[in-house]
């Protein structure tokens, strides 16, 4: 079986994205160490997905650059990048008759040349990824008949099948039930890969990530360990909510509770 690529250092250097005269991401510099898990948080439209799309080359940055172990991601062939960096975008295939297995097996494409078939090792990688995501039993089912959460797990399995050392995930848990939310994040953590994950659930983020980067209006406003970043003041400023942050008595991780009502005006 192909060993997974080793985790790389992912760096954004002054990344800016302007579309239609609107700055979606401004001057973002972010450094993710090998094996580190960083959560991107922030309100809708803060630029999280846009930044992630620059990472996996779905979008070219207007300014700045993204490097993987020092190599500019736009200066290498797409296939080589896809062997080192896997992504879970939000969009899912539809309309065509693809089975769950076929969707997940697409993850092997960057490892394959033209006319090269799938071998037993590929099938093991794909089935292993489906098993990791608890959807192996659905391998022969048509993808478009799955529930939203099952689809999402298949797309994560596709990224796992890439065996890349770095992963970029755009809200990988938004359709998942509580148990699978935990499972997916624990799995990613356990892979030892470098990961950047856009996530709305701050409690989930606090429990699983090394650092949180909170974005607002296209730029990072706070970055650091969950306990440092998740403060009532920041939540009031960025999300405009009145929130209480306590440390969980059993796990010691920050726990955010949003209270009804407007935050106090400063």
């Amino acid at each position: 079986m192909t060993p997974p690529d080793r985790p790389a250092a992912l760096r954004a250097e002054g990344v800016g994205v302007t579309a239609g005269g609107r700055a979606l991401v401004r001057e973002v510099s972010l450094e993710v160490a090998p094996g580190e898990v960083v959560v991107l948080a922030g309100p809708n439209g803060a630029g999280k997905s846009t930044l992630l799309r620059v990472f996996y080359r779905a979008l070219r940055a207007t300014s700045g650059r993204v490097t993987l172990d020092g190599d500019d991601v736009w200066r290498m062939p797409g296939r080589r990048l896809a062997r080192r960096l896997a992504a879970v975008p939000q969009e899912a295939p539809g309309e065509f008759e693809l089975t769950v297995y076929e969707v997940a097996a697409m993850g092997r494409t960057p490892h394959k040349r033209a006319f090269e078939g799938d071998d037993a090792a590929d099938r093991r990688v794909v089935m292993g990824a489906l098993e990791d995501l608890d959807v192996a039993g659905l391998a022969r089912a048509p993808f478009d008949r799955l529930s939203g959460g099952e689809k999402q797990r298949v797309l994560i399995a596709r990224a796992l099948a890439q065996r890349a050392g770095t992963m970029v995930l755009d809200e990988p848990t938004n359709h998942l039930d509580l148990r699978h939310q935990m499972d997916v994040l624990r799995l990613i953590r356990g892979l030892g890969v470098t990961a950047v994950v856009a996530l709305h659930d701050l409690n989930l983020a606090a429990a699983f990530c090394d650092r949180i980067c909170v974005m607002d209006a296209g730029r990072p406003v706070a970055i650091g360990r969950p306990a440092e970043v998740l403060t009532p003041a920041l939540l009031a400023e960025v999300y405009r909510v009145d929130a209480e942050v306590t440390l969980h008595p059993r796990t010691g991780t920050p726990r955010v509770v949003v209270l009804p009502g407007e935050p106090e005006r400063r």
Binding site: A58, P89, E91, L98, T109, P110
Partner: peptide, 24 residues
């Protein structure tokens, strides 16, 4: 087309996914 049938499959998954899987 047979030679590029894998990348062609990627297009079924959508532009974003195809890009993420290494296709220009």
């Amino acid at each position: 087309l047979l030679g590029v049938s894998r990348p062609l499959n990627l297009l079924l998954a959508g532009e974003e996914a195809a890009a993420a899987l290494g296709l220009d």
